[in-house]
Simulated assay, not measured.
Amino acid sequence: MSPRQPLPKDPIADARGQWERRGWTEEAAPMAAVTSIMRVQQILLARTQAALKPFGLTFARYELLALLSFSREGRQLMSRVGALLQVHPTSVTNAVDRLEAAGLVERQPHETDRRALVLALTPEGRRVAAEATAALNAEVFARTGFTEDDVTRLNEILTRFRAQAGDFEAEGA
């Protein structure tokens, strides 16, 4: 992605003003918040893609490697991977196909259930997961520009939103 000059003013703030001038005063601030979240997602995705490019990974494939690397044995049922990553089984299969072709994971038969498949990190997959995590930590996660308080508040707000949207069951619900 080539660097570009910042815009002279905030187009989302302008859009909010347009919303308010058209009488959508109650919706104007939430529209600006949603649009800002979507723009921030684009910015962060571009940063993560740049950090992961040297490893030949997309963020989705990185998440799968990270998930496996966090498990005790570097293995996980393929069906469980999709549930934990909250993606469709077809997306998991596509990511696994690419990671397997790159020699980073392998499919293994389950020890007792012939219908189930286990995904396992290869030694190269473990190395790439560790190096990609270090790159993301250094180039993206440690450089968000958010203060510690911002991060705490954002996590609280976004977690509450996700719970209310049915993304997961909130504790005590």
Rank of each mutant, 00 (worst) to 15 (best):
A95E: 12
G82L: 12
V92A: 04
D97V: 08
A116F: 13
G166K: 04
K9L: 14
D14E: 15
E63N: 07
V92L: 01
E148P: 02
E169K: 08
D150Q: 00
L52C: 04
T122N: 01
E131A: 12
E100S: 07
N155W: 08
I12T: 08
N155Y: 09
S79P: 08
R162M: 09
A95S: 15
P30D: 05
A33N: 13
A15S: 09
D14K: 14
A33G: 13
E156L: 00
S2M: 11
G17E: 10
G145V: 02
E20I: 10
T144N: 06
V118D: 00
S79H: 12
M31H: 15
E111Y: 03
G82D: 11
M38I: 15
R61K: 07
R39K: 11
P3M: 12
M31W: 14
W19R: 05
V151P: 08
L77E: 14
A83C: 07
S91R: 15
E26P: 08
Q164F: 03
D14A: 15
G172P: 03
A66G: 04
T147V: 00
L117D: 09
L84P: 03
S71K: 00
R75E: 05
G82Y: 09
Y62R: 07
R160Y: 07
A173T: 11
L84F: 06
H88W: 08
G56I: 03
L121P: 05
L136I: 02
W24E: 04
V128L: 04
L85K: 06
P6V: 05
G145N: 00
R47P: 13
T122M: 00
P89F: 00
L85R: 06
A173H: 09
A32P: 11
A46M: 12
L136R: 02
W24V: 03
G166H: 03
D10L: 09
R115C: 08
E156K: 01
D150F: 01
G56F: 06
Q41C: 10
I12Q: 08
G56L: 07
